[in-house]
C-alpha cells in the first residue's frame, strides 16, 4: 500500500542512526488517560508519542494496557536514570525521528493517527525493523518495543494477569504438560 511504500522510502533515505532535530514544538494538551505520569525528561510531543506507541504495542484488552499500568512513566524513568548519556540521546532522537518519519509518510504525528492507523503503522514499522535493516529509526522501533514490553511484563498486571507468576513456586517440576501451567512464566 501507499503508506507502506512511503515509510520504506523514508527509511531508506534516512538510513543509519538518525539525528534529525525535532521539527515539532511543544504541543499543548495530552490524551486523557488518568495516568498520573508527569514527564520530567520527555517534551510534550515525545511524551505523547511514547504513550500512544506504547499503548499501540500493548493495548487495553480484557486486561489493562500499557498506559494504565504506567509503562510510559517507567520508560522515561529508565531512559532518564538507567541509560547512559549516549543511549539517552539515541532514544530521544529516535522518538523525534520516528515522529518525523511518520509525519512525512502519513501527514500526521503518530499520536494524532486513529488507533486503527496507529496499529497499521506500527505493525509496518515492526515488520520493517525485523527485515535486514541494522540501524536507524527501525532499530529504534525494536528498542522502544522492548522497553515497552519490559515495563509491561514486569508490572503486576502484565506478570500476573497476562503471563503467569508464582512468587513461591514451592517445588520444581522439570517436565509437565503446558496446559497445567496455562501461560508463559513471567519469571
Amino acid at each position: 500500500m501507499e503508506r507502506r511504500e512511503a515509510i520504506k522510502r523514508t527509511a531508506a533515505i534516512m538510513g543509519g542512526v538518525i539525528f534529525a532535530p525535532s521539527i515539532f514544538g511543544v504541543l499543548s494538551g495530552c490524551t486523557a488517560t488518568g495516568d498520573p505520569w508527569k514527564p520530567v525528561l520527555f517534551n510534550q510531543s515525545q511524551a505523547n508519542l511514547t504513550k500512544s506507541l506504547a499503548e499501540t504495542i500493548i493495548p487495553e484488552t480484557d486486561t489493562a494496557g500499557a498506559i494504565e499500568v504506567g509503562v510510559p512513566g517507567f520508560m522515561e524513568k529508565m531512559v532518564n536514570e538507567v541509560y547512559t548519556e549516549e543511549q539517552r540521546m539515541v532514544f530521544l532522537e529516535g522518538l523525534d525521528s520516528f515522529d518525523s518519519v511518520c509525519m512525512n509518510s502519513t501527514g500526521n504525528l503518530f499520536a494524532d493517527l486513529s488507533s486503527d492507523e496507529q496499529l497499521e503503522y506500527a505493525t509496518e514499522m515492526n515488520r520493517l525493523a525485523l527485515s535486514d535493516q541494522p540501524m536507524g529509526v527501525l532499530n529504534f522501533f525494536l528498542l522502544f518495543k522492548e522497553l515497552t514490553m519490559v515495563g509491561y511484563f514486569t508490572s503486576e498486571v502484565g506478570a500476573t494477569q497476562v503471563l503467569r507468576y508464582e512468587p513461591v513456586p514451592g517445588y520444581y517440576d522439570g517436565c509437565m504438560p503446558f496446559e497445567e501451567v496455562g501461560r508463559t512464566w513471567a519469571t
Binding site: 499501540t56 504495542i57 500493548i58 493495548p59 484488552t61 486486561t63 496499529l119 506500527a122 505493525t123 515492526n126 515488520r127 525485523l130 525494536l142 518495543k145 522492548e146 514490553m149 511484563f153 497476562v162 503471563l163 501461560r183 508463559t184 513471567a186
Partner: peptide, 19 residues
C-alpha cells in the same frame, strides 16, 4: 516473552502471542 520483541506480533496479537 522477551523473544517476542523480535516477532511480528503487535497489539492485541502480541498479548496473546506471549502467553
Amino acid at each position: 516473552w522477551v523473544a517476542a520483541v523480535r516477532e511480528l506480533a503487535i497489539g492485541k496479537q502480541l498479548k496473546e502471542f506471549v502467553q
